[in-house]
Design a protein around this nucleic acid. Structure first.
Length: 375
DNA sequence: CTGGGGAGGGGGCCC
DNA sequence: GGGGCCCCCTCCCCA
């Protein structure tokens, strides 16, 4: 593809990815693109769609290139994707944006030029931009919208964006943005009885095989179909196996979703990297556009990813979520705590867990597990 | 070495 | 049943 000829890509020839797990290596898609980009940028109303969905969704009937990141697939060909063929990493974009192929730069610039005069919808309007990157497709989110279901927060102004917000318990007043300590995960919390509840108590649907409960029957149904190992073991179910790997699913829908992780049908128009789901591509495109809709209310730092903002908020908290039970030191991430333990804290006493998870703090993260994902 | 940001994936929930 | 969105988690890279 065109970008492979760019100076930028040549500049990256020196970077090796042999050490990089296959899962994390850039996946390049060789694709012939028109010699010239579109001369007319999309209408602002369609810009997001154009940017986010300017890819080719391959149907399962197509014979996509081998985009699988599975080791066995790559070992067959030996064509391991490397940084050398990955033209535009996020870092490269940030450091040397002018080394983009001029045509793509023109196209992006034209898109933004068309976007700028677009009035921001009232429900998304924000007083001022909070960072000086590139024009945003929408204004930064205040912190209260990052955790829309926190009890002290105001109701969502854009219901479609916050569909999880429970209309049964709208907050009665607007409160100041909460501190990170207040930002409990909007997911369910465990009650004393161990039964998960979410917001106001309402009927839960419990899996008879593993005792997991769900707020909707649909949720329970999908769990039983897709994920419940206990159910798989106890029931004779029709199975659907992946032709790319050994994974077996109990429904065609689950298999289809899984196959997307092999076929990676969503390709970035700018760099060719492929993703399994459109929203993953959406997040990736932000690395090109510089769009950072999620801003920290403490330091005004902005992030392209909500999860990364959430992790960042931990840095403003004096007491982190993960604490070493031996020395009491707290960490914002499990990985940091793990490193701390591996480096020989020496605090782990037999019979007691070497760490303590602060369930009273935001994020519901679990202790390390031995779960190994097949891909 | 530690801490933090960037990026991406899997699975759950809602519509 | 499928799509969209979200949370949680993990890994890599860098200061």
């Amino acid at each position: 593809m065109l970008v492979e000829d760019s100076q930028n890509s040549r500049a990256m020839m020196t970077k090796k990815y042999a050490h990089c797990p296959l899962k994390k290596r850039p996946v390049m898609v060789r694709e012939e693109r028109p010699a010239t980009p579109p001369t007319t940028p999309p209408h602002p109303a369609h810009l997001a769609t154009t940017l986010y969905y300017d890819y080719h969704c391959i149907t399962e009937n197509d014979e996509p290139e081998n985009l699988s990141t599975k080791p066995e697939d790559l070992s067959k060909t030996g064509n391991y994707p490397s940084k050398a063929t990955s033209p535009l990493t996020a870092a490269a974009v940030k450091v040397e944006p002018r080394e983009w192929p001029q045509q793509q730069l023109d196209y992006l610039t034209a898109c933004r030029a068309r976007l700028e005069p677009t009035p921001v919808p009232m429900e998304l309007a924000r007083p001022t931009p909070q960072y000086a990157y590139l024009p945003t497709l929408y204004a930064p989110y205040p912190i209260e919208e990052i955790y829309p279901t926190a009890p002290v927060l105001s109701p969502p102004v854009h219901p479609h964006l916050y569909s999880r917000y429970s209309p049964a318990s709208p907050p009665s007043s607007i409160s100041p943005p909460p501190c990170p300590e207040d930002l409990r995960s909007p997911g369910s919390v465990s009650s004393d009885s161990g039964v998960s509840v979410s917001g106001p108590r309402r009927p839960r649907y419990q899996c008879p095989d593993c005792a997991k409960s769900y707020s909707t029957y649909s949720g329970l149904s999908k769990h039983q179909q897709y994920h419940c190992a206990a159910a798989e073991g106890s029931l004779a179910r029709k199975s659907f196996s992946c032709k790319y790997c050994a994974k077996v699913y109990t429904s065609l829908g689950a298999l289809k979703m899984h196959i997307r992780t092999h076929t990676l049908p969503c390709k970035c128009h700018l760099c060719g990297k492929a993703f399994s789901r459109p929203w993953l591509l959406q997040g990736h495109i932000r690395t090109h556009t510089g769009e950072k809709p999620f801003s920290c209310h403490h330091c005004r730092r902005a992030f392209a990813d909500r999860s990364n903002l959430r992790a960042h908020l931990q840095t403003h908290s004096d007491v982190k979520k993960y604490s070493c039970s031996g020395c009491g030191k707290t960490f914002s991430r499990m990985s940091l705590l793990s490193k701390h333990l591996e480096s020989g804290c020496g605090c782990g006493s037999p019979g007691s867990p070497p760490f303590e998870y602060r369930s009273d703090l935001p994020h519901q993260q679990l202790p390390p597990t031995t779960t190994v994902h097949a891909y």
